[in-house]
């Protein structure tokens, strides 16, 4: 869900600047801190996964409870060996970390508190493009002192993204989630669509970031594919819109589902890209 949080371009730019500054600071610090952090704690679902991908054995101490939630996390099995935290300062401090990985917009109070206690915290902004995924792998890799592994992973990621590029005419697709929420321009999901040969009907309808798209306007846009989310247990009115007769009647392909792979900008987004590319190929095969 976090991948689709609305945010303005300005915020994104600020985040990119912050990222660069943080990266520069880390590079400058690296020679001074010859030793890598021995105890790393992550308090954000997305940094959980980056850390699990990059940390040396024993280096990562704890990840959040969300890392074990199959609806949010791509790495449920991997997360089972780590201590679970719920991101509260007290709990994190008692884990005695050398480095805490956190998100930029979440748990700000916790981050302030931890910094006040002298814990070093790296805040990682949410990803809004595929290029930022590779950048973030490098950033977290540097912070963990795993520069080489991170560089290799980032290069492999970039190569695979380039290889998955679908060319040719674009099919129309729209994201449609509970309460009529869609994902438009300037998002990672939008870039996944563009990469795999789709134009985003939500973006065409004028949605930037995440926003509401009234059902009437989705019907008018008449997309070929509607990408929705897997419904949660316990029926709600918000999700009822996804089974509205009008949505079924426009005859769009509605089988595609976003899942945990779409939530964070980690190399796991490649799995989502492969599925969308496959869907695009099946569309092309049909008359």
């Amino acid at each position: 869900m976090w991948g689709f949080v609305p945010r303005s371009d300005r915020l994104t730019k600020a985040a990119a600047l912050a990222l660069r500054a943080a990266a520069a600071a880390l590079v400058l610090c690296a020679p001074v801190q010859a030793d890598t952090p021995a105890r790393v704690v992550s308090i954000n679902l997305c940094t959980d996964q980056l850390a699990m991908l990059l940390a040396a054995p024993g280096q990562l101490v704890s990840v959040t409870h969300l890392a074990r939630d199959p609806l949010s996390s791509s790495m449920v099995a991997e997360a089972s060996v780590y201590t679970i935290n719920r991101g509260q300062a007290e709990q994190v401090f008692l884990l005695d970390p050398d480095l805490v990985l956190a998100g930029t917009y979440t748990s700000l109070a916790t981050v302030d508190l931890l910094r006040g206690l002298g814990v070093s915290v790296l805040q990682v902004p949410p990803v809004t493009s595929l290029a930022e995924v590779a950048r973030q792998v490098r950033l977290v890799g540097q912070a963990l002192g795993q520069d080489e592994a991170a560089e290799a992973m980032a290069v492999a990621f970039e190569a695979e993204v380039a290889a998955l590029q679908v060319t040719g005419p674009q099919a129309t697709a729209a994201f449609y989630f509970a309460s009529g929420y869609t994902t438009g321009k300037g998002t990672l999901a939008d870039e996944v669509l563009a990469l795999t040969g789709f134009s985003n009907a939500g973006a065409a309808a004028g949605v930037t970031g995440g926003g509401l798209l009234p059902l009437e306007r989705l019907v008018l846009a008449d997309p070929q594919v509607i990408v929705t989310a897997t419904p949660y247990p316990g029926a709600t009115r918000s999700e009822e819109i996804l089974s509205h007769p009008a949505l079924k009647a426009i005859g769009a392909e509605t089988g595609a589902r976003t899942d945990a792979d779409w939530v964070c900008g980690t190399p796991h987004i490649l799995r989502a890209i492969r599925r969308m590319a496959h869907l695009r190929a099946t569309l092309a095969a049909a008359p």
């Binding site: 059902l215 316990g234 029926a235 709600t236 009008a246």
Partner: peptide, 25 residues
């Protein structure tokens, strides 16, 4: 207490009512 994260936001709907996105069903 619902396992569904959208359920909490619907407290307002049940207390205030809405006709948005209803169907013939």
């Amino acid at each position: 207490l619902s396992a569904n994260p959208f359920a909490v936001t619907e407290i307002v709907y049940w207390m205030m009512g809405s006709l948005a996105d209803r169907s013939m069903l």
